Deep mutational scan, measured.
Amino acid sequence: GSVVKEKKEKALIEVRPYVEYYNELKALVSKISSSVNDLEEAIVVLREEEKKASEPFKTDIRILLDFLES
């Protein structure tokens, strides 16, 4: 629970300088966080969101995924 939350919060802070739609990304992460149990599940849902998103938000999600998977 809290470790996953920390990882996601740290990821958002780390990617902030590189993303165009930070507030939207943060809102998406919050929405996903409330419906998943762990980081792996969150990553799966983020990948689905990435497929549906259009640029440049798609790239923002990709940047976040790269950080979460590192």
Rank of each mutant, 00 (worst) to 15 (best):
G1W: 00
G1D: 11
G1M: 02
G1E: 10
G1F: 00
G1Y: 00
G1Q: 12
S2K: 06
S2P: 05
S2T: 08
S2V: 09
S2Y: 01
S2R: 06
S2N: 11
S2G: 08
S2Q: 10
S2C: 14
V3E: 11
V3S: 13
V3I: 11
V3C: 15
V3N: 12
V4D: 12
V4A: 10
V4G: 09
V4Y: 10
V4Q: 07
V4W: 15
V4R: 04
V4L: 14
V4E: 11
K5P: 05
K5N: 13
K5M: 13
K5D: 14
K5S: 12
K5Y: 07
E6A: 10
E6S: 11
E6N: 09
E6Q: 07
E6L: 04
K7N: 06
K7P: 07
K7Q: 12
K7M: 15
K7A: 14
K7H: 11
K7G: 06
K7T: 12
K8P: 14
K8E: 13
K8Q: 15
K8M: 15
K8F: 15
K8V: 15
K8G: 15
K8T: 15
K8N: 15
K8C: 15
K8W: 15
E9K: 05
E9V: 06
E9C: 15
E9F: 14
E9L: 13
K10A: 12
K10M: 12
K10N: 07
K10Q: 13
K10T: 07
K10Y: 11
A11H: 03
A11I: 09
A11P: 02
A11T: 04
A11D: 03
A11Q: 03
A11C: 14
L12I: 03
L12G: 01
L12T: 01
L12A: 01
L12D: 02
I13Y: 04
I13F: 06
I13S: 11
I13M: 12
E14Q: 09
E14D: 06
E14A: 15
E14P: 02
E14C: 15
E14R: 08
E14G: 06
V15T: 02
V15P: 01
V15D: 03
V15H: 01
V15W: 02
V15Q: 01
V15G: 02
R16L: 12
R16A: 12
R16M: 13
R16H: 07
P17L: 06
P17A: 07
P17C: 14
P17H: 06
P17M: 05
P17S: 05
P17I: 13
P17W: 07
Y18W: 05
Y18D: 10
Y18I: 13
Y18A: 08
Y18L: 14
Y18F: 13
Y18N: 11
V19K: 01
V19M: 02
V19C: 08
V19Y: 04
V19S: 02
V19A: 02
V19G: 02
V19R: 01
V19I: 11
V19L: 04
V19F: 04
E20N: 13
E20I: 15
E20F: 15
Y21G: 04
Y21C: 14
Y21V: 02
Y21N: 14
Y21P: 01
Y21H: 11
Y21S: 07
Y22H: 02
Y22L: 03
Y22E: 02
Y22C: 04
N23A: 13
N23F: 13
N23W: 13
N23I: 13
N23V: 12
N23P: 03
E24Y: 06
E24K: 14
E24T: 08
E24N: 04
E24F: 10
L25G: 00
L25H: 00
K26W: 14
K26P: 00
K26G: 02
K26D: 05
K26V: 15
K26F: 14
K26H: 07
A27K: 05
A27Q: 07
A27T: 08
A27M: 08
A27L: 11
L28E: 00
L28C: 01
L28F: 04
L28W: 05
L28H: 00
V29A: 04
V29Y: 15
V29S: 02
V29Q: 01
V29N: 01
S30V: 09
S30Y: 15
S30A: 11
S30N: 14
K31Q: 08
K31P: 01
K31S: 08
I32H: 03
I32W: 05
I32A: 03
I32E: 02
I32Q: 02
I32N: 03
I32C: 14
I32T: 03
I32G: 03
S33L: 14
S33A: 11
S33W: 15
S33H: 05
S33V: 13
S33N: 05
S34G: 08
S34D: 13
S34F: 10
S34K: 08
S34Y: 13
S34H: 07
S35N: 09
S35T: 10
S35A: 11
S35Y: 14
S35V: 11
S35L: 10
S35I: 12
S35R: 12
S35F: 14
S35Q: 12
S35K: 09
V36C: 04
V36T: 11
V36Q: 04
V36K: 04
V36F: 05
V36L: 05
V36R: 03
V36H: 05
V36M: 04
N37G: 07
N37I: 06
N37H: 10
N37T: 08
N37P: 08
N37D: 09
N37E: 07
D38N: 11
D38C: 07
D38K: 08
D38Q: 05
D38I: 08
L39Q: 04
L39M: 12
L39G: 04
L39R: 03
L39T: 07
L39K: 02
E40I: 07
E40R: 09
E40D: 11
E40S: 09
E40N: 09
E40H: 07
E40A: 09
E40K: 08
E40F: 09
E41I: 04
E41V: 05
E41Y: 05
A42D: 04
A42N: 02
A42G: 06
A42Y: 12
A42V: 14
A42Q: 08
A42E: 06
I43Y: 08
V44W: 15
V44I: 09
V44F: 14
V44S: 11
V44N: 09
V45D: 05
V45P: 03
V45G: 08
V45K: 12
V45A: 13
V45C: 12
L46P: 00
L46H: 00
L46R: 00
L46S: 00
L46V: 01
L46K: 00
L46G: 01
R47Y: 10
R47D: 02
R47V: 05
E48P: 00
E48K: 13
E48D: 08
E48N: 12
E48T: 11
E48F: 14
E48G: 11
E49T: 05
E49S: 04
E49I: 04
E49M: 03
E49R: 04
E49K: 04
E49Y: 11
E49Q: 05
E50A: 12
E50S: 10
E50Q: 11
E50Y: 14
E50M: 14
E50I: 07
K51S: 10
K51W: 11
K51D: 10
K51V: 08
K51E: 10
K51M: 10
K51C: 10
K51T: 08
K51H: 10
K51P: 02
K51I: 10
K52M: 10
K52T: 06
K52P: 00
K52D: 05
K52S: 07
K52F: 07
A53P: 00
A53I: 03
A53L: 03
A53Y: 08
A53D: 00
A53W: 06
A53S: 07
S54Y: 08
S54F: 11
S54E: 06
S54P: 09
S54A: 10
S54L: 07
S54C: 09
E55G: 12
E55L: 11
E55F: 13
E55T: 06
E55I: 12
E55W: 12
E55V: 12
E55Q: 12
P56D: 02
P56Y: 04
P56E: 03
P56A: 04
F57A: 01
F57K: 01
K58M: 03
K58Y: 01
K58W: 01
K58N: 03
K58G: 03
K58Q: 04
T59G: 09
T59A: 12
T59N: 13
T59C: 12
T59F: 14
D60H: 08
D60C: 14
D60E: 02
D60I: 14
D60L: 15
D60N: 04
D60G: 08
D60T: 05
D60R: 04
I61E: 00
I61N: 00
I61R: 00
I61A: 00
I61S: 00
R62M: 06
R62A: 08
R62K: 08
R62T: 04
R62N: 06
R62L: 05
R62E: 02
R62D: 01
I63L: 06
I63W: 04
I63C: 03
I63R: 03
I63V: 06
I63H: 03
L64F: 14
L64R: 00
L64P: 00
L64I: 03
L64H: 00
L65H: 01
L65T: 13
L65Q: 00
L65G: 04
L65F: 02
L65V: 10
L65I: 10
L65S: 04
L65C: 10
D66F: 15
D66N: 13
D66W: 15
D66Q: 13
D66C: 15
D66E: 09
D66I: 14
D66K: 14
D66Y: 15
D66M: 15
F67C: 04
F67G: 01
F67L: 05
F67Y: 12
F67W: 09
L68C: 13
L68Y: 04
L68S: 01
L68N: 00
L68K: 00
L68W: 05
L68A: 02
E69D: 10
E69L: 11
E69Q: 12
E69V: 09
E69Y: 12
E69I: 09
E69N: 11
S70D: 10
S70A: 10
S70I: 09
S70Q: 09
S70P: 10
S70V: 10
S70W: 13
S70T: 10
